[in-house]
Computed example of a mutant assay.
Amino acid sequence: MKRLIILILASVISLSILFFVFSKHQETKKYLQNNTVLIQHSYILMGDTGTGNSNQSEVAEGVKSYCSFTQNCKAVFMLGDVIYDEGVTGIKDEQFLTKFEKPYADISLPFYILFGNHDYIGCTSCYLEYDKLSTKWEIPARFYLQNYKSVSFYAIDTENFDNEQKSWLINQLSQNSSKWKIVLGHRPIKTFEETKLNEKWNGDEELKKILCNFADFYISGHSHILEDAGQVENCRVRQFISGTGGSYPRNVKKPYEGKFYFEDNGFLALTVSGKNIRFEFFDKTGNSLYNFTAEK
């Protein structure tokens, strides 16, 4: 009898867990079901990750849960500040393990790395060298292009947005025939996070002009929030921010003037399906918070 009761309780618990997992993804599930034939891939985007604390581990679990549920994740893009507080001191720095390899050990995807201001404090060349040692850490150059079917990601270095990089970005954006052109960087062009509001950085105006002329979306970190800041002023480009992949969240200026914000840890998932591209924010447990869909 005791064994039977234990088996029944175990079954009830298992069913409860399954119900919780499926219910918390209900809206995402509905979208995927309605676009089964058209779905290509999902891409995870998150910045300000490398703290090595429980926030980072919990977000990693949320990403794992999402990708296990959708079964269509193609890659993860790390939007800078990959290792806090001062980057790494050398190629054998233990932080590569404690703040990257271990937290994401259960996510079998390539992780495309971008530089952030905290990464620049340490050995930046070590990031490029570590690409040769890790099976998932990917950073082929300081700035680079990742092409997929219907969508192209332009990973830039906002800590050193020099003339070489500006010319490269203009050429790549103008010559690429991809349906969706998405530029990724660490520092935002537009945000309402209190500590980054109206922050200026070297090259921001030049980047804004390039984005407005050639790109569809700009996604960054740096602001420690999740945010759809809306369209950049006098521009068609929309700014998304995913800056709480492990960092301590901050607040936005109130009253809020953007489209959406979340002052806690989480990540952004981008899904391409037919004519549509969908941006969906999730909290660290994988709960869907907000989504925006565009069509072309």
Rank of each mutant, 00 (worst) to 15 (best):
M1S: 09
R3A: 01
L9Q: 00
I13F: 00
L15E: 00
S16C: 13
I17L: 14
I17E: 12
V21T: 03
F22W: 03
S23Y: 10
E27C: 04
T28L: 14
T28R: 08
K30N: 13
Y31L: 08
N35Y: 06
I39Y: 01
T49P: 00
T49M: 14
G52E: 03
G52S: 06
N53E: 10
N55S: 07
Q56G: 06
S57K: 10
V59R: 09
V59Q: 08
S65P: 00
S68W: 06
F69H: 11
F69A: 00
T70Q: 03
N72E: 04
K74Y: 05
A75N: 05
F77N: 09
M78S: 15
L79V: 13
D81H: 12
Y84P: 06
G87M: 06
G90C: 12
F96Q: 10
K99D: 08
P103T: 14
P103S: 15
I107V: 10
L109E: 05
F111Q: 14
F111V: 14
I113C: 07
H118T: 11
H118I: 03
D119T: 12
S125Y: 06
Y127N: 05
L128S: 08
L128C: 09
E129S: 14
K132W: 02
K132A: 06
L133K: 14
W137G: 09
E138G: 00
I139T: 07
P140Y: 11
R142E: 15
Y144A: 12
Y144P: 07
Q146W: 01
Y148F: 15
Y154C: 07
I156D: 08
T158Y: 06
I170A: 07
S174I: 02
S174M: 10
N176I: 05
S177F: 08
S177R: 14
S178Y: 13
V183C: 10
H186C: 11
H186D: 13
N198A: 05
N198I: 01
E199V: 05
E199F: 04
K200R: 12
W201I: 02
N202P: 05
E205W: 05
K208E: 15
K209Y: 02
C212V: 03
N213H: 03
A215M: 03
L226F: 08
E227F: 04
D228R: 02
Q231I: 10
N234E: 13
S242P: 14
G243F: 04
T244S: 10
G246R: 09
G246F: 09
G246E: 10
P249H: 02
R250Q: 12
R250W: 01
K254Q: 15
P255L: 11
P255C: 04
E257L: 11
E257K: 12
E257Q: 13
G258F: 04
G258R: 02
F260H: 03
E263C: 10
N265R: 01
N265T: 01
F267R: 01
T271E: 07
T271P: 01
S273G: 07
K275N: 15
R278N: 15
R278S: 13
F281Q: 00
D283R: 04
D283M: 00
Y290G: 11
N291A: 06
F292T: 09
E295H: 09
